[in-house]
Design a binder for these strands. Structure first.
Lengths: 219, 219
DNA sequence: ACGTGAATACTTGTATACAATTATACAAGT
DNA sequence: ACTTGTATAATTGTATACAAGTATTCACGT
């Protein structure tokens, strides 16, 4: 399920990160030829990587190459609106369907996150946060949750990392993860759903606070 | 935003439909060479089509080719669980952000749907149903909703079509679409959200009834 | 100065060739 | 009968060649 060994995949991951972290700013135009030359490979794997980025809606064909779209703060807020509504469900399913070993795997990410929070390493915190959520999607018992939530969660990694640079926010996030893993370990889908819903809600607040956005209501 | 002209895209659409409708049953193995020969094209576009199908999780690399996964009834039920939670939000946004022309475009699909319901043409009903929902995603004001909901809605088209073969269910669905477009035209996000949420809920019931599934609760 | 049109360069889509990996079949030894 | 090793076949990953379409440039006429 998770092999990223081919050149195409490597290039995809690299470009995805570069786009999400602004190395290639919005509006920049990427062409197969230039990328293949700068990366020292042929057009074929570059082309496949661009196809994947296009499917993720991070770039767009603009006639003279692929234009970088990237992720706006507004996109991120909308992603949280969606996550608030379905991550709890995924967590509830996970509480019921995951094996004990899988729950231990999730627990491990919380412990590592605690370690990195004590060190103030926001990059590593973000990594464990990513793993925590992705494992819950993975063990939710249906690929539908995984496939739907993974791209959303991946796309906001830059914003998540920035939030984690504030100690108080990193502490809050960790505390919420602890409540979630506790609910999962006690096999309580209701508690897991509630804890995850609250986590998503708070994470959105933290994002809004970090970037001084009006949280507001949807309508 | 919507150009599907290249061979890759044509092959993708054809294979996607064939997989979703069971022409290629679950477990069947597709190889680039065989497909390229049977379609009379080179491996390159076939390869790209397979990459897209893999990203949509409809096929999976199994070492000796790509194995067809397809969509199970359980997947479809999970997709409805997700749609129930976020389609209402998309509709609410649409009520606020869509232009009058765009709303007319949506209304048009309801009128065509009514025509096809009177004829009992389930294929055409499904097509207009698809268009109705996809336009709402599209005019929801954020690509995030579109990108998230489109693959989910596409994947269950076979189940939607089967449901629409029963006159009573087609009538119900049409009536619900009418309520939604009415709310959209009155620019009422709350009514639009409520009407869409109810529609998704009922559509799930109709699916469950059609295939004799326990609707149950999530947990 | 401005529009028009042709030539040019750029970019992608597709086909094909080749290399490398992996699966398969089959034979030999225990 | 079962494993092991080897040869063979199948399959994909990557590079490259070529064609077609599209944008750009620049010269020319007005």
């Amino acid at each position: 399920m998770y092999k990223n060994v081919s050149l195409s995949d490597q290039i995809f991951e690299r470009l995805e990160e570069d786009i999400l972290f602004g190395v290639y700013p919005k509006g920049e135009i990427l062409t197969e030829l230039k990328l293949s030359e700068s990366l020292g490979v042929s057009r074929t794997p570059v082309r496949e990587a661009l196809k994947m980025l296009e499917q993720e809606h991070l770039i767009e064909d603009c006639g003279k190459g692929m234009m970088v779209l990237g992720i706006t703060l507004e996109d991120a807020m909308n992603i949280y609106e969606i996550r608030k509504r379905i991550e709890g469900l995924a967590a509830a399913r996970c509480a019921v369907t995951a094996t004990d070993e899988q729950l231990q795997e999730i627990k491990e990410t919380v412990e590592l996150q605690e370690f990195y929070v004590s060190r103030g390493d926001s990059e590593k915190i973000k990594e464990q946060d990513t793993l925590f959520h992705e494992l819950i999607y993975k063990y939710s018992g249906s690929a539908v949750f995984y496939d739907t939530l993974i791209p959303l969660h991946r796309k906001i990694q830059k914003f998540r990392k920035t939030s984690m640079e504030q100690k108080s926010k990193a502490d809050q996030s960790l505390a919420e993860h602890k409540r979630i893993i506790e609910a999962l370990l006690s096999r309580d889908p209701f508690k897991a759903e509630a804890a995850m819903d609250e986590h998503a809600e708070h994470a959105q607040f933290r994002l809004a606070d970090t970037f001084n956005v009006e949280t507001g209501k949807d309508h």
